[in-house]
Design a binder for these strands. Structure first.
Lengths: 152, 152
DNA sequence: TGTATTTCGTTGACGAGTCAACTAATATAA
DNA sequence: TTATATTAGTTGACTCGTCAACGAAATACA
C-alpha cells in the first residue's frame, strides 16, 4: 500500500478504519455509532452545551443532533434541561450513569490514539497535532467564508 | 479554537468539514455523497476493479458498494461487466461520460487539497503525507490482526 | 407597542452505510 | 465425481446523517 497523493482520501480512509475499531467497543456500553462523539464531548470536556452548539462542534446537521441526544437520553447517558434565560435552548448534561462508565469508556479512545501513532516520536506527535489543527482551521475558514459571502 | 488532544477527533472533524465542501460541488455533476470516492478511485487511478476490492479499498460494507455502484451505473458514470474467468466477480469500468467530466470534476478535489494545506511548506506537506500513511497502516494492521485472531 | 426577522429545536422524507441472511459460483477435498 | 467450504454479490431491516419545512421563543425594529 502506497501513500495517497490526496490528503482528503487519506483522512477518509483513516476515519473509516477507526470506525471499525470504535463500533464494536462502544456497542458493549450500549452507545450507538452515531452518538459516541457527542458523549465524548460532553463527558471528557464539559457538559451543559445546547444542541446548536453541539451540532456546530461535531459538524453535523442539527436534525441528527436532536435524534442522537434523544437516543442518549432514552438510554440514560444524558439528561436535558431547558435554558432558564433563553427558552429555545436545551442544555445537555451527562448523568451519573455516564460518570460511572467514564474511565472504562475513555480507555477505548486512549487505546485507539495510541495505536494510530504507535511508532511516532514525541516530536512527530507534536508536529502531527499541529498539522491537523491547521488543516482543520484552513477548511473551516474556507467554509465560513463562503457561507458569509454567497450562502447564509 | 484549540488543538485537540485526540487524533481521531481531529480526523473526524476535518473529514466532516470537507464533506461540506464536497457535497454541493459533486451534486452539480449529479454524483451523490455516497458515490464520489468510488468514482474518484476508478477515474483517477484505474478501473476494472470488482466490488469486493472496491469495498476493501474504500473501507465500506460490500452491501453499500453494491448500491453505490448500481447508482453510478444508472446515472451513466460506470458500466459493469462479468469477469470471464471468475463468474462471481463484477468488474467496474468508467464510461465515456465520466471521461468527459474528468478534468472539471478532478478540479474539485485538487482545490480542496490545496485549501487544506494552504499554509504548509513543501517539507511540511511531505511530513504530513508520511504521518497520514503511517497512521493508516497502524490502524489497518491492528484491525487485520484482530480479524485474524479472534473474529475472521 | 406590534410586526418582521432570526434562532433553536423538531419532524418527515430521503440517501448513506452497517449487519445478517441469502444465492450462486468457485475452490477444496473426500 | 460428489459433498463441503469459501467467496462475490444481493437483499431486507435497521441506524446514521442531510435537507427542507415547520413551530415556538427571542430579538430587532418600526
Amino acid at each position: 500500500m502506497k501513500p495517497y497523493k490526496s490528503f482528503i482520501r487519506s483522512i477518509l480512509k483513516i476515519q473509516r478504519t477507526c470506525q471499525l475499531y470504535i463500533y464494536p467497543r462502544i456497542a458493549k456500553f450500549g452507545v450507538g455509532r452515531g452518538q459516541w462523539y457527542f458523549l465524548n464531548r460532553l463527558l471528557f470536556e464539559n457538559d451543559g452545551l445546547n444542541q446548536e452548539t453541539l451540532s456546530e462542534e461535531m459538524v453535523v446537521d442539527k436534525a441528527h443532533t436532536t435524534r442522537a441526544i434523544r437516543n442518549l437520553e432514552e438510554n440514560g447517558f444524558v439528561c436535558c434541561q431547558k435554558d432558564e434565560i433563553d427558552g429555545r435552548k436545551k442544555k445537555v448534561f451527562v448523568t451519573e450513569k455516564s460518570r460511572e462508565i467514564e474511565s472504562d469508556y475513555h480507555q477505548i479512545f486512549k487505546d485507539l490514539n495510541a495505536i494510530l501513532v504507535k511508532d511516532f516520536s514525541g516530536e512527530e506527535k507534536e508536529a502531527l497535532r499541529n498539522y491537523l489543527h491547521r488543516m482543520m482551521n484552513n477548511i473551516q475558514e474556507f467554509i465560513d467564508e463562503s457561507e458569509r459571502t454567497s450562502g447564509h
